[in-house]
Nucleic acid binder design. Structure first.
Length: 417
RNA sequence: CGGGCUAUAGUAUACCGGUAGUACGCGUCCAUGGGGUGGAUGUAGACCGGGUUCGAUUCCCGGUAGCCCGACCA
C-alpha cells in the first residue's frame, strides 16, 4: 500500500474530547473515526488490525471445533420474553412499521438456542459449538474509555451445546485454553489473568480474562503464585479457601476484562425448549456454555498496554502491515526513489505486507508518522542505501537498528505471527 | 440515570456586550532536504432555539452534543 494513496491522515493533535489513550492514538493515527459517544468507525488501517485480531480468534475457535455462523442483529422479542431478558435496560429497541417491537442484539444466547432447537433432537446431535463475530449493540448508560466500552462494538460469541455437565466441563477447559492462546498471540498474555468471577445459577464461578492496566474498570486480586486472579465482586473467605489462596499474597490490581466464559447449564435451553432424547428415549435439556471476546475492546487493550509516548506499537501478529518502507527520496525520479520503488516491488512479490511511504515529505515528518502508526519494522531508504544496497531496519518496539541487504530483507519472515 | 464541566475554522486553542486572533492543516511560490525545516501569501469559524439589549459569539433560559465523577455493566 502506498502511503500517498491512503485517504486517512495522521494528526498532530489528539481530539479534545477523547481522554483515553487508545482513542487519542487511534484517532490521531487514522485507525478509527468517532461517530458519536461510544460509536466508532474502523478506517482502513484500523480495519486491517481488527482483521488480524479477528483472524487469530477465528483460528483458535476453529481449533476447538467451533463452527462459524452469523446470526441476525435484529431480535425477536418472543424468545427474550421467554427468558425474562426483554425488559433489560441494555436493549436498543425499535418498532416495525407493521407493528410490534424488535431489538438490536447485545448478546445472542436466545437466538442460538432457538436455532439449535430446530437442529438438535438426539444425543447423537451433541456436542457442538457455534460462534459468530458480529456487531453488538448495548445502550450503555455511559460510554467511555474510547473503543473499549462502546454502544456498538464487535464481539465474538461462541456457544457450546452438550448432553451432560461433564461434557460441558471438558469443553469449557478447552475453551479456556483457547482463550489464553488468543491473548498470548496478540501480545498481552503476560499481563492477562484467568479471573474467578460470579457464576450465576448453574456454576459457582465464571471466568474472566483480565488484563492488568490502569485503563481498566475492574478491580481484581492477583495471586502470582497460583497464576490466577479473583474479581473483587466475589472475593470472600469461602472463595479464598476454595481456591487455596491466602489473602495476604494477593495484589490488588485494576484490569480490563478482555474475555468472559460462562457455564450456562440449562438457563436457556429449558425456557426455550431445547432438549434432546437420550439413549433411553428420555427428553433432557441441553447443557450450554457461552464464551465471549470483544475484538474491538481487545484492540483498545493492546494499545493501552503497548503504545508509547510516540504512538502506537503493534505486535507483529496484529500490525496492519509488517513493514513500513520509508523512502527519503528528494525527487520522484531520483536514485533513492528508484531504489525504494524497486524494494517495494520486491516486497510485494515476496508477499510481505508493506506500507510504502512514498510521500514527498521531509524525513522528520515521515519518521514521526511512522512512530505514530506503529508498524513493527521500518526500513529506511536514504542516499546510503541507494548507493550501497544496505538498508536500515528499525524495530518500532525496541528502537534497535540493524543493517540489512535486499536479500536479508526478502528472506526475513516479517509476517511471522 | 444522579452530579459537575464544556461547546469558537478541518484540528488544537485565544480574546471580546460593538470589525473574532494564533498555531497546525489545506492551496500557491521561494529556499531547504535523515527526526514534525524557514519565509511569503491565500483559504476557512462562534452547536440549535428563545430571551435581555440600540447591538449577543459573549449575559440569561431551554434544547442538543461531548467529556469527567458516581451508579450500572453475561
Amino acid at each position: 500500500m502506498r502511503q500517498s494513496r491512503i485517504f486517512t491522515r495522521t494528526r498532530r493533535e489528539a481530539p479534545a474530547d477523547e481522554v483515553s489513550k487508545n482513542a487519542r492514538l487511534l484517532v490521531r493515527a487514522g485507525f478509527v473515526h468517532k461517530e458519536m459517544a461510544g460509536v466508532y468507525s474502523y478506517l482502513p488501517l484500523g480495519l486491517r488490525t481488527l482483521g488480524k485480531i479477528v483472524g487469530i480468534i477465528r483460528e483458535e475457535m476453529d481449533a476447538i471445533g467451533g463452527q462459524e455462523l452469523v446470526m441476525s442483529s435484529l431480535q425477536d422479542p418472543e424468545i427474550w420474553k421467554a427468558t425474562d431478558r426483554w425488559e433489560q435496560d441494555v436493549w436498543f429497541k425499535t418498532s416495525l412499521k407493521a407493528g410490534g417491537d424488535i431489538g438490536f442484539g447485545w448478546t445472542q444466547e436466545e437466538a442460538i438456542t432457538r436455532i439449535a432447537s430446530q437442529q438438535v433432537s438426539s444425543y447423537r446431535d451433541l456436542p457442538f459449538a457455534a460462534y459468530q463475530i458480529q456487531t453488538k449493540f448495548r445502550n450503555e448508560e455511559r460510554a467511555k474509555s474510547g473503543i473499549m466500552r462502546g454502544r456498538e462494538f464487535l464481539m465474538k460469541d461462541l456457544y457450546s451445546f452438550h448432553a451432560s455437565q461433564e461434557d460441558l466441563d471438558a469443553f469449557y477447559e478447552r475453551a479456556k485454553d483457547a482463550y489464553a492462546r488468543v491473548f498470548a498471540r496478540v501480545g498481552i498474555g503476560a499481563q492477562t489473568f484467568v479471573t474467578f468471577a460470579s457464576g450465576g445459577a448453574f456454576s459457582k464461578y465464571s471466568h474472566e480474562f483480565q488484563t492488568l492496566s490502569s485503563a481498566g474498570e475492574d478491580t481484581i486480586y492477583v495471586s502470582r503464585e497460583k497464576g490466577l486472579a479473583i474479581n473483587s465482586e466475589v472475593l470472600n473467605d469461602d472463595v479464598l479457601a476454595d481456591l487455596g489462596v491466602s489473602r495476604d499474597t494477593l495484589e490488588e490490581q485494576t484490569a480490563i476484562e478482555v474475555g468472559n466464559i460462562f457455564k450456562l447449564g440449562t438457563r436457556f435451553s429449558e425456557p426455550l425448549g431445547l432438549s434432546y432424547k437420550d439413549e433411553f428415549g428420555a427428553a433432557k435439556p441441553v447443557v450450554m456454555g457461552c464464551y465471549g471476546i470483544g475484538p474491538t475492546r481487545l484492540m483498545g487493550t493492546i494499545v493501552e498496554l503497548l503504545s508509547d509516548e510516540k504512538g502506537l506499537v503493534w505486535p507483529k501478529s496484529v500490525a496492519p502491515f509488517a513493514v513500513h518502507l520509508v523512502s527519503l527520496a528528494r525527487d520522484a525520479g531520483d536514485e533513492v526513489a528508484r531504489a525504494s520503488d524497486a524494494l517495494y516491488e520486491d516486497l510485494q512479490k515476496a508477499g510481505v505486507e508493506s506500507l510504502y511511504d512514498d510521500r514527498d515529505l521531509r524525513a522528520g515528518e515521515k519518521f514521526a508518522d511512522g512512530d505514530l502508526l506503529g508498524i513493527p519494522t521500518r526500513i529506511v531508504v536514504g542516499k546510503d542505501a541507494a548507493a550501497t544496497g544496505t538498508f536500515e531496519a528499525v524495530d518500532r518496539a525496541t528502537g534497535v537498528v540493524s543493517k540489512l541487504s535486499r536479500e536479508d530483507i526478502l528472506k526475513s519472515n516479517f509476517n511471522t505471527k
